[in-house]
Design a protein around this nucleic acid. Structure first.
Length: 221
DNA sequence: AGCACGATTAACT
DNA sequence: GTTAATCGTGCTC
């Protein structure tokens, strides 16, 4: 039995945020219209939503606590900034699909496609807090401390077994992967700042505060 | 050639 | 306890 350790969030912005137990009854996937909006709005509104991975008979899920918006060809940090390619093709398609790609020789990244069809945009899911299937997630991520299970874009993909096979998956049909309504996040709990790992981008894009996370309220509830 | 990262190591306070 | 630097890895263009 593990004593409830007091966990001070440090470098990870949303490390201290915990979803309420118990998890709610499963809901319908968010509709297409949710995604068919401006990427910044979608990014902000994804905070507190439930990312659900269906794996065989299992339901693994986590509450979204950190995201980044990548807002089209004019955004030099966005994969679409150099035009349409086989990899980023799905970003140009209809909203509400997964854009999953591989990077750094070992990591998968999960994005959700935004904006009406033809306009590339996506939100990178950077961190979730486990809600359902935590024992299975611990098994998948054997040897990791709990705080490293799903905090980080590559970690959450590993934890939920998200890889290139889910690229272009329809989150609205939601067969293997979906996003459900879960928890309203008030404005005062939302923090914003520059995106991570985009040093190659133009200065204006590096500075843009297009990363959103749930600010953990220290001490009080 | 270059990466929308993270594990590891090495320095700090 | 923390932050900063390094680099593996293989897919994309």
């Amino acid at each position: 039995m593990v004593a409830p350790t007091r966990r001070r969030s440090a470098s990870l912005p949303a490390g201290g945020w915990s979803p309420p137990a118990p998890p709610p009854a499963p809901r319908a996937p968010l509709p297409r219209e949710f995604y068919a909006r401006g990427t910044l709005e979608v990014a902000r509104d994804l905070l507190g939503k439930l990312l659900v991975r269906r794996l065989g008979g299992l339901r693994l899920s986590g509450a979204i606590v950190e995201v980044e918006a990548y807002v089209g060809e004019a955004d030099t940090a966005c994969h679409a900034s150099r035009g349409r390619t086989p990899r980023n093709e799905v970003m140009y398609g209809p909203p509400g699909h997964a854009y999953v790609y591989f990077t750094y020789g070992m990591h998968w990244m999960l994005n959700v496609v935004t904006e009406p069809e033809g306009r590339p945009g996506a939100v990178l899911v950077r961190s979730v807090v486990p809600v359902e299937g935590i024992e299975e997630i611990r098994a998948i991520r054997a040897g990791r401390p709990d705080r490293e299970l799903t905090s980080g874009p590559a970690r959450l993909c590993a934890a939920l077994r998200i890889d290139g096979k889910l690229d272009a998956a329809d989150l609205v049909l939601g067969e293997d992967l979906r996003v459900e309504d879960f928890r309203a996040v008030p404005e005062r709990d939302v923090a914003t700042g520059p995106r991570i790992g985009i040093d190659y981008a133009a200065p204006k894009d590096r500075r843009a505060p297009w990363r959103f996370w749930i600010h953990s309220r220290s001490g009080t509830a």
